[in-house]
Nucleic acid binder design. Structure first.
Length: 488
RNA sequence: GGCGCUAUCGUCUAACGGUUAGGACGGAGCCCUCUCAAGGCUUAAAUACGGGUUCGAUUCCCGUUAGCGCUACCA
């Protein structure tokens, strides 16, 4: 049974790239009926914040994906130290007493810094003596130097990988404050937690050679690796909080009214393909179809813009998922957005409205602009010119609306009955059906673009409809007066 | 600089040596239609460049170019 982990470091909000790494791990775990582990990699006390950790959980919760085990790296420091010690005792690591940020900097700038021979060759006696004297040191891995050999591993995405030890520097295992570095803590935990597959961003591909060295030194089995191509901005730069702001945060998608399943769908299609022509997929379909073979190797652009923070395909997918939702589910998700926009929405009514707007909204948040007239007690002001139908004039609008009043007052208030009655009235008046419907639509909705008229009337109810049509008539009358006044 | 990785329409991708290089988003057009949508149909749009290998290269190899990553006592 595979065991996989998502190991974010709490140094900012959960961004879309990290979320994708979580999703790929989760998809693999669920596909293989394995174990999904969440591990907070918080060994860098200087940069970790509690707020960031909270926001990461917030982001993960929104995804509606779960995990089976949870750990915090800072609570496992003892283990990391033990593994480091074991490596040290085997002579595979050494103490480096070079003060932090000392002259080494210069030689590093010039290029190939691999190790400091003086420290690497320090005698055991002197090393022990200086350590005992309390001199701070960094514990470094002693990368084999005598006869360079190739470190190899097979990546499930990128294939066979190899790198000469001659190109790997003596990296740190323990910092001078005694805390483990990422490499150390991560490998020690991966060993201890029995991680079988490490699925992470491609930015770790070259780090993996170091990790293989650590696994070997610790006498542990080497896990499988699957590195994911990176997500990048339209200009090719990597996604960053500083440069791209909140558009890279998953909570931005949440707050904009994306459905988690749509977000998961969008993100999993970035760098992975089911190899058939499917694009809109349910979470279960993604789980079923997921495999490392479907992951490709080149970076994927999240196609956002300054003026539009969301990739058009994400928006389209969201609309697709919105339409696939059961009305009750949709209404339930719409409600908080409606309330946030200041509408006193009653759930029963929303359930009737939801089917009318589902094909007309791209995000949940759109409900505020698409369904406002259902919930507002008074219509927002609109231009009376909107009431004038195609190839008609104000007089026609007035005629139609006046005629509509008694029909609306008398007809059975159902979709088919209203349809029949208003069509008949249009015919009687000698106007086209559209010319009849449009003024009523605007009178009732306050705008031209709206859901189908009869369902709308039905949901709105007789009283509201009569009131709004009446108001529209007054609007037109005062408009006519104004016009004739100008004419004379 | 060193090392590693990558390269198909604007974007996400399919084509594991032989296709008129396919699909999706977005764009354009048409249809449907009480508006707006949704839906349907049509259309423009790509194999970075140069060498090989091969009867035949998007596909395999080499080089160039470009991009990305690592090169921290960050992860």
């Amino acid at each position: 049974m595979p065991r996989v982990r998502f190991a974010p470091s709490p140094t900012g909000f959960l961004h879309i790239g990290s979320a994708r790494t979580f999703i790929f791990n989760w998809l693999y775990a669920r596909h293989e009926h394995g174990t999904m582990i969440l591990r907070i990699d918080d060994t860098d006390a200087d940069r970790n914040t509690r707020e960031s950790e909270t926001s990461i959980f917030e982001g993960l919760q929104w995804l509606e994906l779960d995990w089976d085990e949870q750990y915090r790296q800072s609570e496992r420091l003892e283990l990391h130290g033990q593994v480091a010690q074991a490596i040290f005792r085997k002579g595979l690591a050494y103490r480096d007493f070079t003060p932090a940020g000392a002259e080494e900097e210069k030689s590093r700038q010039e290029g190939a810094w691999l190790f400091n021979a003086e420290m690497r060759e320090l005698s055991a006696e002197e090393s022990d003596r200086r350590a005992a004297a309390g001199e701070p040191f960094v514990l470094r891995f002693r990368v084999p130097r005598d006869s360079p050999r190739d470190i190899r591993f097979r990546d499930s995405v990128y294939g066979e990988q190899s790198k000469s030890t001659a190109d790997i520097e003596d990296f740190a295992l323990l910092r001078s404050n005694g805390l483990p570095t990422y490499h150390m803590a991560s490998c020690a935990d991966d060993i201890d937690l029995g991680i079988s597959h490490i699925i992470r961003g491609q930015d770790h591909l070259t780090n993996t050679f170091k990790h293989v060295l650590i696994f070997e030194a610790a006498g542990a089995a080497i896990p499988e690796f699957a590195h994911l191509p990176l997500l990048i901005a339209p200009d090719g730069s990597k996604l960053s909080k500083r440069r791209h702001g909140p558009v890279v945060s998953v909570t931005t998608y949440r707050d904009a009214g994306f459905l988690p399943q749509a977000f998961v769908n969008f993100v999993c299609l970035l760098g992975w393909s089911p190899k058939d022509d499917r694009d809109r997929m349910s979470v279960q379909e993604m789980v079923d179809a997921f495999s490392f073979e479907g992951i490709n190797r080149s970076n994927a652009v999240v196609n956002f813009r300054e003026d539009d923070p969301f990739d058009p395909k994400a928006v389209w997918l969201n609309a697709q998922h919105l339409m696939a939702l059961a009305p009750e589910d949709l209404a339930g998700r719409l409600l908080p957005f409606l309330r946030a926009a200041g509408f006193e929405a009653e759930p029963g009514k929303l359930l009737r409205v939801a089917p009318l707007i589902r094909e007309r909204i791209k995000t949940l948040r759109d409900v505020a602009t698409a369904a406002d007239f259902f919930f507002a007690s008074e219509l927002a002001p609109y231009d009376s010119a909107e009431l004038i139908p195609q190839k008609g004039d104000a007089a026609m609008a007035l005629l139609v609306l006046r005629a509509a009043l008694p029909v609306l007052a008398a007809a059975e208030f159902t979709h088919p009955a209203l349809d029949a009655a208003l069509r008949a009235e249009a015919q009687r008046l000698g106007v086209k059906a559209g010319q009849m419907f449009q003024p009523i639509r605007v009178a009732v909705c306050g705008r031209k673009a709206a859901p189908p008229l009869f369902e709308t009337l039905e949901v709105l109810g007789r009283e509201t409809c009569l009131h709004r049509v009446d108001r529209a008539i007054h609007l037109l009358e005062s408009r006519n007066e104004a016009v004739s006044h100008v004419d004379s």
